[in-house]
Amino acid sequence: MTSGKRIFSLVVLLVLVLYVMRVTAYGRVEATAPEKTLMDVFAALEQAATGLGRGVRDVVAFPLSLLNASRRANELSEQVARLEGELNRATEYRLENERLKKLLDFKSGPAVDSGLEVAAAGVAGRDPGNWFSTITINKGRSNGIRENMTVITPRGLVGRVIATTDRTATVLLITDPRSAVSALVQETRTPGMVEGTAGSAGTLHMIHIPNDMPVRPGQTVVTSGMKSIFVRGIPIGEITSVKRDPTGLFLEASVRPFVDFNRLEEVLVVTGAKPAAQ
């Protein structure tokens, strides 16, 4: 007898046994020993089938759950990145607004009080070869910007315009060695000349200070406006040290600028000034 016929005969036999059990069960309370054995066998088979079905379902569902978890993780990662980008942009807008507010306050406050007419401009570029040499601003001849105009921030002197196009202008910073600013010690009116220092990290050097006039660290240096293209009275920096120059005829001082040239993003160009009262 082949395997197929044997399986078929076994199935038929089980069906007959179940039928006999159903017929003979009427009126009986307790099952016979063979019936109990068959019931136990079928219960075990049902439990095994249930467990096998649950296992197959878990095996099939596990890769799907991993796929869903991976997709959800990617969605959350993209959402976090998007929110971080929005937060960074919001922070940048806030900082820019704070800087522009300071410029606006200066334009409507000290600048007006001193008779200065100023135009705000943004820093569009810097000299890659010398960070403390020149900057490019996003205003030019079409905005009324001309060469030799003084460039400032609310904190102090930045430099002067040395070249212009219709839409941009190049500003020579006071930290450049080619720059020279006629200056005064504010407290004592001691004159001198402020120059940039080659190879320095944005520091200044005040020279030609008369050696018989009082100069000391902590004093403020401002533009003198005397025989100079720079507007008078613009803060430059603070004296940090004083010594005699190599000739012994003058004093010289190191000056820390008030403007942070590392973080220069917006400036004001002095486009005009009311004449001083006679």
Rank of each mutant, 00 (worst) to 15 (best):
V194K: 01
I209Y: 06
A201L: 05
I207A: 07
R189Y: 06
V194W: 02
V194D: 02
M193T: 12
V221S: 02
P217T: 05
S182Y: 13
P217Y: 06
E187G: 07
V185D: 03
E195Q: 09
V194T: 03
S224L: 08
E195G: 00
V181M: 10
H208V: 08
S182H: 14
T188Q: 14
T197Y: 05
E187D: 12
G199H: 04
G199T: 01
G196W: 03
T188W: 14
H208W: 13
A198C: 00
T203Q: 03
K227W: 15
P191Y: 03
A180V: 09
S179P: 08
S224E: 06
H205P: 00
Q219Y: 13
D212T: 14
S179I: 10
L204E: 03
G192N: 07
G196K: 01
V222S: 07
S179Y: 06
V181Q: 06
I207P: 04
E187V: 07
M213N: 14
S182M: 12
M213C: 15
V181Y: 03
Q186V: 00
T223M: 06
S182I: 09
P210I: 05
V181T: 12
G218T: 09
V222L: 08
P214C: 14
G192C: 14
G218A: 11
T197A: 01
I207D: 05
S224R: 07
T220M: 12
T197V: 12
P217W: 08
S224M: 10
G192A: 11
V215S: 06
V221G: 02
T203K: 05
H205R: 07
S200W: 02
R189K: 12
P214A: 15
I209W: 05
A183M: 13
P191F: 02
E187C: 08
G202E: 01
D212E: 11
Q219D: 13
S224T: 10
G225K: 01
H205F: 08
G218M: 09
V221E: 01
T203M: 02
T223P: 04
V222D: 05
Q186F: 09
M226R: 15
A201N: 07
V194A: 04
S228P: 10
S182F: 11
I207R: 13
A183K: 05
T190W: 01
Q219W: 13
V194Y: 01
E187I: 05
A198R: 11
K227D: 15
Q219H: 13
L204H: 03
H208N: 13
T223F: 04
A180N: 09
G196Q: 01
R189E: 08
